[in-house]
Write a protein that binds this DNA or RNA. Structure first.
Lengths: 194, 194, 194, 194
DNA sequence: ACCTAATCGAGACGGTACGTCACGTCTTCGT
DNA sequence: ACGAAGACGTGACGTACCGTCTCGATTAGGT
């Protein structure tokens, strides 16, 4: 690589951090043979030590990259109706999660978490934040009376993300707008006690 | 190890096959540091080559073990009502999948599949068989008129297994009998078009 | 391979023995990657066990092949004069030992003997027989008075075979007729005390 | 092993190099079951990769060890007479080559060279250097008139080393001082045209 | 004329070593 | 002081052969 990038002396170099996140993301996305720390370091034009100084594991890098990625890109919709918001949320979320790069990173992340206690916990938190977003959306609807007071919001949330991850892990195609509509309907019914 | 076990000449030795499956299952369940092929071979009292002769990868061993495991243990219930059968199926399936050994194997299997094209396909088939079982159960109920003719059976199936895997991958606790009842109800509602 | 060759019931099958010796010789001569027992067995269209039943090691096969080879091909010359006989012997011996196949086998034989006590002894006997042949030739000349009674025949013999093996092991070119003449002269002088 | 030895960062670690050469030499000398790279690495307290980083093969290690060994230990004698120098050279050379460790290494070296083209060439160079030393000694004598101008110095040199290797490869006993004297005499006669 | 016993081709098996890859730690040296 | 470069000890990878074994077929020779 031999990237030429100014050293910054004794402060952490933000450019370097970005370079590493980008390299990791990029390598995963390319989906060639398993991504190694050495490959990331090389691609980022960085010494291995620089990586180990700031992250405990490969998964931690990915999680950080993923978190930044998510922050930028998931707005909570506001269409006026719960059905509309839900549908919009699902459509957006499924679409984004199935982008090839993102899907690859999510898969790797979950995969790494299976033999890394620490990472596992971090992934749990990551998914909890995603669930919280959807939960907020649904609670807002319930407060507006679009769902009964005893609706099982948490179950709907878990079913939604369960399906999402199931599809991602198995490498299925995205569900599309029509699918999102169908899914939103179904989950609202599921949440509504008989 | 120096296991004493009779050779079978030029035929495949079934005892050896069993020893390997058992060893693999056992090591995964113990959940110490990552399970290696060498550890499996050692535990089974077997040469590595014997493993590579019959399985292309660690995941393939686990899948075979899992498949045998599943064959023995998942009866399709028949309680007389769809709600009862569904609930029973979910309770059993969730309980079994959350047994520590099984959960560990499932996690590893899915994890390995993420960087192994071939295994990925085999896991897809494995999950398809599981879905087919539940699908049969639901279709039987629909044929008996317990679900409308236009019910979205496939969606319910995917939601069920999505939730199952989500829980397993994130290391959550099993849902219990009450949870199964709640889930069966919710999914039947989800499947029934508004 | 699937060689079709008649069984001989409970007697050793001579054809099989020949096939193995030939295969071993041939494979060595081809000078591709290291000759293995399995390769010999395959080439000879034979099971490994058949080889292990009759020979203790790869080297033993080669030695047997070499011994048969030598029996057929080294006549002791009789030209009438010691100088002539010696020269003839050297010319023939060097020429034969440098034939590519033979040289390869000799090299392998000596090489294998370095980590095989048993073979080492057998190679020692093999070389002793070769030395004895030359010794006989020289003693005959000494008895005819062509060498003084106190001539050091054994030294000449050892120098001759030392040179031969040195050339073979280092992969040098054969010495040719002129070289043989020069060598015979030199060794007769060497053997004759000052 | 868990040898504690300081790393040297991105420069080659000379201590490690020495440890490997010593370990290899030592293991060969012990003459137990065939010396493996893994055994050398273990004995030297070194990772296999460190060996493969610097040497292409086991033989290459031995050759390097042998070369260093030779540099230290073969002085060219100067007794005043050719006969004396030659005798001294032979006595020293045979004695040293028959030291158990050295003999074992030489045997292994020659043995390895038989299935390793690259090593074969390096061994050829090694032996050429040894011959050159003796050649220098004899030429000095010839220049002083102790040998005729048409003496066949090269033949004497080859006969000497041929005998040496023959003895070493066959595992014979060293020739001793008396043998060296006899040999020197014989070879000087051999070199002197009739 | 059978029956027994050894040979043979085949190849699965428990092993050992191979040479490679990536890991995470360490040192050096340039900026 | 930071950061690239990369040597180092470690350990698993998947492969190649080893020498032993069991199988099923084939056939010679003793009864």
């Amino acid at each position: 690589m031999s990237t030429t990038r100014a050293h910054t002396g004794r402060r952490r170099n933000e450019e370097v951090r970005q370079a590493i996140l980008t390299a990791a993301f990029g390598l995963i996305a390319e989906r060639r043979r398993p991504v190694t720390i050495e490959a990331i370091a090389h691609r980022a034009g960085v010494g291995k030590q620089t990586i180990y100084r700031w992250w405990p594991s490969k998964g931690a890098i990915l999680l950080e990259a993923m978190t930044e990625h998510a922050r930028v890109t998931v707005p909570i919709p506001d269409t006026g109706t719960l059905q509309g918001d839900f549908e919009e949320f699902l459509a957006t979320t499924f679409r984004r999660a199935h982008e090839p790069e993102t899907a690859a990173v999510l898969r790797t992340l979950m995969s790494e978490a299976q033999h890394d206690e620490q990472l596992s916990e971090m992934v749990n938190e990551f998914t909890a934040r995603r669930r919280a977003e959807l939960r907020t959306l649904l609670l807002r609807g319930r407060d507006r009376g679009e769902l009964p007071a005893d609706a099982d919001v948490d179950l709907a949330v878990e079913l939604a993300f369960g399906l999402l991850w199931y599809h991602v892990m198995l490498g299925w195609e995205p569900i599309g707008r029509a699918g999102a509509e169908r899914l939103a309907n179904a989950l609202l019914r599921a949440a509504t006690p008989g």
